[in-house]
Design a protein around this nucleic acid. Structure first.
Lengths: 231, 231
DNA sequence: GGATTAATTTTTCACTCGATAAATAACGCC
DNA sequence: GGCGTTATTTATCGAGTGAAAAATTAATCC
């Protein structure tokens, strides 16, 4: 007997043909859904079933399961990054607190999404390097700018962020991320509203950074303007 | 041909027998290691290989793979909880900031551990309910006490923590947790030292809670002493 | 409308999975 | 030292896995 049922489920209704590029897009989009929900260990047959298509067809478009998974990573990590993230943080026409609230508002619009979060966590556990690269992106494009803007708003001289500053920014950033995890992955009732939670976190972030500046800018009042990275 | 090699790998060295209870313990301990590293989808044959034992032997001790996995959960979630967690937070002979630094010092000794973190994340993605129960435990035994202690130290009247307060405490707690994730799962260089990071986070946590108290204790100066939970 | 091209399915392979049943061999007891 | 108990292994089943090869069928072109 055939090892997969009629792709559509309903007998007789033969699948419409699609041009190669469209089909590919469709496959990737559904693969994001599918692997996000079921994990990357789930079978290509399961994905094909959800697509209403036979399993070997996948291999016409992707040489292997791993290649398909790479496309999934790209669609999520690269495809959903928005250039306005960086602009929002750096826009000095508004107070930093406003900017950060605005930034985390739109950033969480992207990442507070079941697909995004689950792909992120699954891929992190797999140890694929795109994950490490994404964290590098967050550090360079989000956290370092935030620290720099906070220094600027305090009237402190420019200088590369210290490890302790970045680490603290990571804790707050991770706290906001984890808020999404609780909501979307653990589905534990997250009752307070997002704007308020972000507002509290942003206030604490700025408080913590100013506190750090106060602790570290004593010994170097003028500071080595553009000294080598600390640590 | 036999479907598993000689369990030990090295030929001839027949496996020593162990009494039932000892063997069981050994299996669970190694299963924690194994599934933490490879994920719960990994094969019982892989685990057996690592144990130097044949795969069907596992089924002498656990009726199914899922039952073994449940034992793994118990060993990690229940077995590593330390009663001193709650005592440290509630010990009013010291300032709260000290207590929280001490608490997060020992708490992170337990959870900043590759096994613990990976089991936690894997099980969270699987959606097993022990995960939700653990988060309930954290809320009741850690976060609510922290908020209560913060109120007490401010001289405010006792009352159940509001959702916004708990949510903020979760963000800080999650930020610390995520610090461990970055270190142990994503293995992104975490350079600053743990004590300092915790110190910064604790300071920000207390700042944020006091800020919240100031925002919410205006309209209810005496407050409904033991009113129903907010929200 | 028949030939060409390319999208899709059918069939199949070699292997892995969780689990069961039966055979074997190490240990304790007397 | 033989015997019974039971820990452990051997062998096997049926279902599912990623992948390749070949057969089929829908769309396109002239």
């Amino acid at each position: 007997m055939p090892d997969d049922k009629s792709p559509d489920g309903t007998e007789g209704a033969r699948r419409k043909r699609l041009p190669s590029s469209e089909r590919r897009e469709e496959f990737i989009a559904k693969a994001v859904e599918f692997f996000a929900e079921e994990g990357f260990e789930s079978s290509t047959r399961g994905l094909a079933r959800r697509l209403g298509v036979t399993q070997p067809l996948l291999y016409r478009y992707f040489p292997s399961k791993d290649d398909l998974i790479s496309e999934v990573y790209d669609a999520v990590y690269v495809g959903r990054w928005r250039p306005e993230f960086e602009r929002l943080i750096a826009d000095r026409s508004r107070p930093l607190e406003d900017r950060l609230n605005a930034f985390y508002g739109v950033y969480t619009e992207v990442i507070f999404n079941r697909e995004w979060m689950r792909i992120y966590l699954f891929s992190g556990l797999k140890g694929v390097d795109i994950n490490r690269r994404y964290m590098g992106l967050v550090r360079r494009r989000i956290l370092e700018p935030i620290v720099a803007e906070a220094r600027a708003e305090e009237g402190l001289p420019e200088r590369p962020a210290t490890d302790a500053e970045i680490e603290f920014a990571w804790v707050m950033h991770g706290g906001i991320f984890y808020y999404g995890v609780r909501d979307l992955i653990y589905e534990s009732a997250v009752s307070a509203d997002k704007t308020e939670v972000i507002g509290d976190a942003v206030a604490a972030l700025l408080f913590g950074l100013r506190r750090r500046f106060g602790m570290e800018d004593r010994k170097a009042p003028g500071g080595p303007g553009r000294g080598p990275a600390c640590g």
